[in-house]
Design a protein around this nucleic acid. Structure first.
Lengths: 194, 194
DNA sequence: GTCTATAGCTTGATAGAC
DNA sequence: GTCTATCAAGCTATAGAC
């Protein structure tokens, strides 16, 4: 699996470059240079630039989402406790796949039609799982919002934003941001006593 | 001012195209075609493609932010009331400049260094005004959050997201989304009685 | 104010030597 | 598995006729 290993290496390098500059702004030549090879050599490992994008977001998003959903499903804890853990995990865990998920959110439109449909389904599955959890919490009387679906979108939007603005080191550590956001999200869901 | 009028027309068309496909994905030829002229003719009105981007986001963001801040500053109303109006206005008002603000958020990186700095300052000024308002509300005991600055970022992120996912017509009207988001944001700020 | 024509460059991708 | 060389197409921008 020597070929595959080298390809994985290139995918890692690409995920960082795409994350920093955007898919369209990274030429195959620039990517090859970052990997220490010539432009043409890329096509020994991949059949197109789009395939590299696909590999990044497919593998990365699957891992990211799969690592997060269990926090919502541990039936021993209360709904607010589960949501608290989910928010903290979203912000602090999954560091290695953080690039991939940011690239997915921003550069999805550059996937081929087939790949686009596939990954939109993955995203939607994740979003719906979150929305179902919130709706269940409302039904159980532990959350109070006018619309669980919109609350889910709002929460995912605000979590997605964190990596766009956070600089490390900054005023607050990633852990402190996670603590604060957990409180904000629980309040948003009408879960904390006043 | 015949020249200026035609230029404004092209800027309007460009704002829609850039909004839909992204700055980099819209070629000058495609833009010219949408305006009913040939590619080269664009350069009678503008000196570069970047100038068109700049005109869109400069004019658009100034109007958008200027229309929103007064809702936070009407000292007759309580802090929660003012925030409620601000959120509703963000989602329902300023329709004509909605494209511009979305383009600003996404395509800012393609501005020239000077223009980038200028517009980042405009954005920061707006964000800081929101954060100051929230901090004042906390000091007045009408909001309860661990960190007013982070709350401001979270709120602006979740509002920014609305235009990215909302389709009209959809399950809810823009007005209904605004109603729901106003509740969610007030809860996030710890403002609504439980 | 718009046209045609094109310069000058960069892009993604391919071919064949090693 | 990487190299060099190159193709074909696309891009922004310019020049000069009308």
């Amino acid at each position: 699996m020597v070929v595959a290993r080298r390809a994985d290496e290139i995918v890692d390098i690409a995920s960082r470059l795409f994350y920093e500059r955007g898919y369209q702004s990274v030429s195959t030549r620039a990517l090859a240079q970052a990997a220490g090879i010539q432009g043409g050599s890329l096509y020994h490992h991949f059949s197109s630039k789009e395939e590299i994008l696909y590999r990044i977001v497919q593998y990365g998003s699957a891992e990211f989402f799969a690592g997060l959903l269990p926090h919502l499903e541990s039936t021993e804890a209360s709904y607010p406790e589960r949501l608290d853990r989910f928010v903290r995990a979203y912000i602090t865990d999954a560091q290695p796949r953080r690039y991939a998920i940011a690239v997915l959110f921003r550069d999805m439109a550059h996937l081929s039609p087939d790949h686009f449909v596939e990954l939109q389904a993955v995203r939607r599955h994740f979003q719906q799982a979150v929305q179902r959890f919130l709706a269940d919490g409302v039904a159980a009387g532990e959350f109070q919002v006018p619309d669980a679906k919109l609350a889910g979108i709002a929460i995912l939007d605000l979590l997605k934003g964190v990596d766009a603005w956070m600089r490390e080191p900054g005023r607050l550590s990633r852990r402190q941001v996670a603590d604060t956001y957990a409180v904000l999200v629980l309040q948003l869901m009408g879960a904390l006593p006043r």
